[in-house]
Amino acid sequence: MGNNGNNPKQGSQIAVEPIKQVKDLKAIKQLLRSKPRDYALFVLGINTNLRASDLLSLTVGQVEGLQPMDELVIQEQKTGKQRRINVNKAAVDAINGLLAAMPEVDAEALLFQGQRGPLTVSYVNRLVKSWCKALNLKGNYGSHSLRKTWGYHQRVTFGKGLPELMVCFNHSSQRQTLDYLCIQAEEIKSVYANEL
């Protein structure tokens, strides 16, 4: 095997970051506006806490006819557990835009398809990297950045509590959630900024 710096050593991980600036999220949406599949993938990814593998396993029948805040039930690819999430208006609108652009498809067909068939997580990884590169975002981004972005903005932008996010991510501790969202250092630093 060659020495490829992009591949972690066995047992180690390369952590990807969330997309932290709302203006960057808006810019990526604008970049993808004319590509219904990629737009839906991005919008659904940043508006749910689904892993890329779970996004890619969605079928047309699972999402057809969804209304904002309807419940979507999936079986997680990683854990095999059944998961229930609610989809917001932005996600529903993006899904409906994709469905409108698709040819007539069977309800069992996968929602996210490419010219050569179903999309893969590694392909989504390349897509996310290319979107972030197009905006000259500095950092390490990949398919998991979508899920992390959802959590980051739930905490930082919308002020959701760690206990709720812990449950959403199925984490065992609040520290794990802070580490996962790449905000632990920021939250700790903010404590020292408080003046008495």
Rank of each mutant, 00 (worst) to 15 (best):
G159T: 10
P36L: 07
R175D: 13
L165M: 11
D93A: 10
I14F: 11
G2R: 14
P36I: 08
V16L: 03
N4T: 12
K78D: 14
Y192W: 13
G161A: 13
R84H: 14
I46E: 00
R83Y: 11
K160Q: 05
E64S: 13
Q174E: 14
Y39G: 00
E71C: 00
I19S: 00
E76R: 12
W131H: 06
Q75H: 04
V22A: 08
N125E: 04
G65H: 13
K9V: 13
R126N: 08
Y192Q: 14
K81N: 15
R33G: 00
I95L: 07
L41D: 05
L165F: 05
F169T: 05
G139S: 06
I14G: 03
T48A: 03
T48E: 06
D106T: 14
R51I: 09
S57Q: 15
R83I: 09
Y123G: 10
F112K: 04
K26P: 00
Q21E: 15
N140D: 10
R126I: 06
H144F: 06
L111C: 01
K23I: 13
I19A: 01
K138R: 12
L165V: 05
M69R: 12
F169P: 07
Q82S: 14
Q184F: 06
L72I: 12
F158R: 15
F42G: 04
I46G: 00
K89F: 00
L181V: 09
A90T: 07
S173T: 15
D24H: 13
Y39W: 13
L25D: 02
G114Y: 09
E186Q: 13
G114E: 02
G114C: 08
P163F: 09
E71F: 03
M69Q: 11
L196F: 15
K189T: 11
L58Y: 02
D179T: 12
K78L: 09
I95N: 00
E64P: 04
M166Y: 05
K138F: 06
D24F: 10
L181D: 03
K89W: 04
L162I: 14
V105G: 01
P68I: 02
C168V: 12
R175P: 03
C168G: 02
F42V: 04
G80P: 11
G139F: 07
T157Y: 02
Y152I: 09
K81M: 05
V156M: 13
S12E: 13
L178P: 03
G151T: 11
I46R: 02
N170M: 01
T59F: 01
L41H: 04
I14C: 00
L119A: 01
G142I: 11
D106H: 12
L56K: 09
P8L: 08
L165N: 08
I74T: 05
L56C: 04
N194C: 03
D70T: 11
R155D: 00
L162F: 11
I19K: 02
L44K: 00
W131N: 09
G2N: 13
D38Y: 03
P8G: 00
I74K: 02
I28G: 08
R84G: 02
L66Y: 02
C132I: 10
I19T: 02
S173D: 04
D106S: 14
N136I: 07
Q77G: 10
L98E: 01
F42S: 06
L44S: 02
Y123S: 12
D70K: 04
K189I: 07
S143M: 02
